[in-house]
Write a protein that binds this DNA or RNA. Structure first.
Lengths: 215, 215
DNA sequence: TTCATTTTTTACCGTTTCGCACAAAAAGTT
DNA sequence: AACTTTTTGTGCGAAACGGTAAAAAATGAA
């Protein structure tokens, strides 16, 4: 049994929601352009407290990325669990992603694009940990989409084929993030994602989800 | 008539190829993580000379972006001028982009992705000039692709439709840049781009280029 | 040679950066 | 009340940052 009541001076901040604040600073300014003073001001803490709780600036950034990836996956998984059929599910997922990218989600209130796609690439070549983190985000997206396609097609689509479609969808999603970061209109991005899903999935319609659409 | 022979001490560097070197430093490290000392070392010049010739760090970066966009457009335009039919042309363009992104082009020797897509997004929210530059790059890509589709379809595709397809292709292209920056395999990326083009364009095959494929 | 002009070079300025001592403060424990 | 433990606040310090002033060097013109 560990101690239930801690010994020393109590913290005046919640670690989880402080990490949320840290994440938002990185989300807005990227890694290199973010200073610890900015983070200190945004969280109301001073640098030694931050360092004690989260480690170095790099540690904070990687923890923010992982946290973002978790939130993002939950957000999209939730959005993709209502409609029926790959096409409709993917449209919902893309629309939810655009909401998140353009600040209509609860994660942040501004049009920041995807934290990982917006901030990791510029750092990826000077620190292999960042490049690896970026690769992990991509892989997570690929496998998530591929699983959705495989599960929904009930064996009508081979695994290699599903992986390919999943990567096509991921390519489009990351392109959407770039455009959101450039300040493009949310509704326009949603229309764009919807038509892209139609083109990328409807070609496989006969093999995928005719059952769902003509029950 | 202006003076043909300049008056003062002659420069010991060529402005054009020096800007190429500057561009490569930004391409590798991004904007914020690049220091003027790094640029000075890469070019063999010292900071005052750089400042006199190219202005501030921000000026150098924006000039690098514009230069890259010009080079990129020429590179892709050239690649898309050999085959016949939208599908084949777009595949060639995508393959040429992957070559450029993975260091097989003459512009650089390493897998850096797209300079604009890799480095501008992380800075776009703190400086509206950077966000504007990003938007310009996207617009240039969109209109370039749309023009190719319109020209190749000979009136069989309405302009709004062509714009939409062009944006789909641009979304995919930017996704490819992210993946190149993450270090993914060039051949894998080319296969991915080829199948994506097939899916995005073959749906319009009857309206687009049946003539070209069944002459 | 002497002067005017332009570039290079050296050196510096004020700021900001990140990480970390060090001591004060706030709690539980004895 | 005295001690232990943990966090907070102040502040340092060595380095890096972007930008520029001032001097030295290299050319053409007079």
């Amino acid at each position: 049994m560990k101690t239930l009541t801690k010994r020393g001076r109590p913290r005046k901040f919640d670690e989880e929601q402080t990490l949320d604040l840290i994440m938002q600073v990185f989300w807005q300014h990227g890694y290199s352009a973010t200073s610890l003073d900015q983070i200190a001001e945004a969280t109301g803490l001073n640098r030694p407290s931050l360092y004690a709780a989260f480690g170095t600036k790099k540690d904070m950034f990687l923890k923010s990325i992982e946290r973002f990836a978790d939130r993002m996956e939950a957000h999209l998984r939730d959005a993709g669990s209502r409609a029926t059929g790959v096409n409709a599910r993917m449209k919902d997922i893309m629309a939810a992603a655009v909401d998140l990218y353009t600040g209509k989600s609860d994660l942040t209130g501004a049009a920041h694009g995807c934290l990982a796609i917006s901030t990791l690439p510029s750092e990826a070549l000077q620190d292999s940990d960042f490049q690896l983190a970026l690769g992990n985000v991509l892989l997570r997206m690929d496998t998530g989409f591929a699983r959705l396609i495989l599960r929904e097609s009930k064996g009508a689509v081979r695994e290699a084929h599903a992986k390919e479609i999943a990567q096509h969808l991921a390519l489009v999603l990351h392109g959407l993030s770039i455009r959101a970061r450039a300040g493009e209109n949310p509704e326009k991005l949603k229309r764009l994602s919807s038509s892209a899903v139609d083109r990328l999935i409807s070609a496989q319609a006969s093999a995928l989800s005719d059952d769902d659409r003509h029950p």
